[in-house]
Write a protein that binds this DNA or RNA. Sequence first.
DNA 1: ACAACGTTTGAATCATTGTTCATATATCGG
DNA 2: CCGATATATGAACAATGATTCAAACGTTGT
Lengths: 134, 134
Amino acid sequence: MNNDSNVVVSLSPDACTTSVVDGERVAAVRQVMPADEVVQDLADVFSLLSDPGRLRLMAALLEGGEMCVCDLAAATGQSMSAASHALRLLRTHRVVKVRRSGRMAYYQLADSHVRMLFDLALAHIGHSEERGDG
Amino acid sequence: MNNDSNVVVSLSPDACTTSVVDGERVAAVRQVMPADEVVQDLADVFSLLSDPGRLRLMAALLEGGEMCVCDLAAATGQSMSAASHALRLLRTHRVVKVRRSGRMAYYQLADSHVRMLFDLALAHIGHSEERGDG
DNA sequence: ACAACGTTTGAATCATTGTTCATATATCGG
DNA sequence: CCGATATATGAACAATGATTCAAACGTTGT
């Protein structure tokens, strides 16, 4: 306990203006805190997964393998426009990839982490029911 | 194979109004699609993780073990009010738990899945740098 | 009881984002 | 070339949510 407790460390301008209780721990935490850019990227990934429509799209692709926009819209219960907008976002963030054939656009998952993220979150919320995939 | 393709299945009212291309696959996907409630819960979990402030809070607790609000605010570079609001959300969703001692409130992670979600998303974005924890 | 402190909360503001409607692009069939 | 189809896109709107300020609450020490 020979740390300087109750010392105000200079952090962000609008950070806690009072003293910190355990300065040593705060310093240690700040040392391993991921960079702003990393935190933001992390937030972006989770933000992508935070919408029911996109979640259903991913669940559909998890099961269906490769599907066109109209089928995806039908399978997820949303308009084609909404599905297209959502798929655009997922495409931008490299979560899905598209294969064009004539006027059709076939989408599939581009990232193997999605399934794990999905199942992990499923485990978290308690609904640990298995989906029919192998 | 002997499925009725190009058939409009009755889904949501505002679903794709045109025909589907692969009706069999759409039906199969819809069959294993998680219930609305599950999808919503899933979205809520990811939504919690989609904010840089909350992400930093969780990263801090991942490293710091148990910390008071003021130290958490200092370690994550946000005001105590913002930290408290964020912690309230995390508390509501059982991601963190609080221990009260006098006027202090000590928070710690309540859920083991957070670390895995974190690392998995970290792997996804490519910044697969290790944080200092064991 | 009073003042200082750590924390919590509510209301207001501001930004972000999902959805919809309309339109645009591109391909297929005739 | 022309109409129909599949997808993509842009702008507008509504809803959601993060942040701030101000104030409240409970605790500690005098």
